[in-house]
Amino acid sequence: MDVSISTQEGRAILRVAGRMDATTAPQFERECAALIESGERHLVAELSDLEYISSAGLRIFLATAKKLKPLEGEIRICGMSGLVREVFSLSGFISLFAIYPSLDEALAARP
């Protein structure tokens, strides 16, 4: 799994590629935690290159969202496709997050 971070329009964008499972999820967790630590409140996870996500990966999204909530921040998710979208929807997580088809839409959306 690769995570690359950039900033655009005041939001930290995490582009995640590869597989996010029990082994690789902690890495994503550390990246998110580091961003929150450094003061970022508005994160966007761009998942168009993510091939697979396990429940361990879902947990990181949930944990990050839980951390950001009291800080009045949020994590938006965009670019989900195929299997990843299926996992989000099956687990019902799709209702927990702000989800956008593309990065542009995620950035453009009003809070």
């Binding site: 429940s55 687990s91 019902g92 997580f93 927990l96």
Partner: peptide, 12 residues
């Protein structure tokens, strides 16, 4: 029927 994983969202 739809439903979120247990523990993720209180009041689901």
């Amino acid at each position: 029927p739809g439903g979120i994983a247990l523990g993720a969202d209180d009041g689901a």
